[in-house]
Design a protein around this nucleic acid. Structure first.
Lengths: 156, 156
DNA sequence: ATGGATGCAAATGATTTGCATGAAG
DNA sequence: CTTCATGCAAATCATTTGCATCCAT
């Protein structure tokens, strides 16, 4: 559990971020930042919305806020090829990618990124302002084990 | 322009593909395969639909067909973070990625792929059945030049 | 005060689905 | 002749938008 001073500190940090982008400081914005900060994984809009204490905040506000944050590059938008966009804080974490288990959906970070060379190649071709998106998909160890177990069960 | 014998050959190829997956050979399926084969870039559903001669083919059929092809791994589904999925034939091309110009939308292939090492690392962590998606975004040379030109125009 | 943020409700638009019919094997 | 694909129309569902009100500055 967080101590009160930590909460205050966090709040000040969020206010600074909003101020530095000339954006108004409002309760929904602070709460959304706090939810994102305390999550290890990228979150969907409805996950964020359902974690809000102030339950009268409208879904539309959550959408508008995260679009704003994405434009300001406060969050990154992540696409796991299901029906939902996911959002993750950018500041205070370094660039990374994700592995998503195709079976249980668990998400792990992949810290390594060796795409510098590829981007260099593209820069030589004349591209500027380069970015990339990279996601991995697979079946994690525990899901593999479970699936083997259940196959054995079937054959018995 | 394609010679008749080429068209026949292509058609036979498509029939073989469908047969090998125990899928029925129908006019919409053959036509969609042909459109995909003749395109250099991944296509959206509505691009495919509007290129169909047999204009009574329903959009729903195009959706169903491409979902089927994706399940069978005849096409790959590509996500450029706009509102549309794109589809590209897998067979007869080797694995590659894309650069999308953020300004004009032009798409170029990126043949190099150096992700083998990263996937190996994930395999050691216990992941199986690995795949990845990788897309680059940037501003292409001609768009950069145009934008500089128009800035100069403004300052004059 | 006043411009921007929010809540509410309605619109949008890509994708999916139910069902009756028609074609493929 | 039976299974499965298609056309048509309606439904779904994430996301966006218009507008009146409220709040941060």
């Amino acid at each position: 559990m967080k101590a009160k001073s930590d909460i205050d500190f966090e709040k000040e940090e969020f206010k600074l971020i909003l101020n530095s982008h000339s954006q108004r400081i409002t309760a929904p914005r602070l709460e959304i930042l706090s939810i994102l900060k305390s999550s290890k994984n990228p979150l969907t809009i409805s996950e964020i919305h359902s974690q809000m204490k102030n339950s009268k905040t409208d879904l539309a506000t959550v959408y508008r806020t995260l679009n704003l944050f994405a434009d300001l590059k406060i969050v990154s938008q992540i696409d796991f090829k299901d029906d939902f966009m996911r959002y993750e804080l950018i500041f205070d974490r370094h660039h990374h990618h994700h592995v998503v288990c195709r079976t249980c959906g668990r998400i792990e970070n992949v810290e390594a990124c060796i795409l510098g060379e590829l981007e260099k190649m593209l820069a030589q071709k004349g591209y500027t302002d380069l970015s990339h998106s990279l996601e991995f998909f697979g079946v994690c160890e525990s899901c593999r084990v479970n699936s083997i177990t259940s196959k054995q069960r079937k054959t018995v």
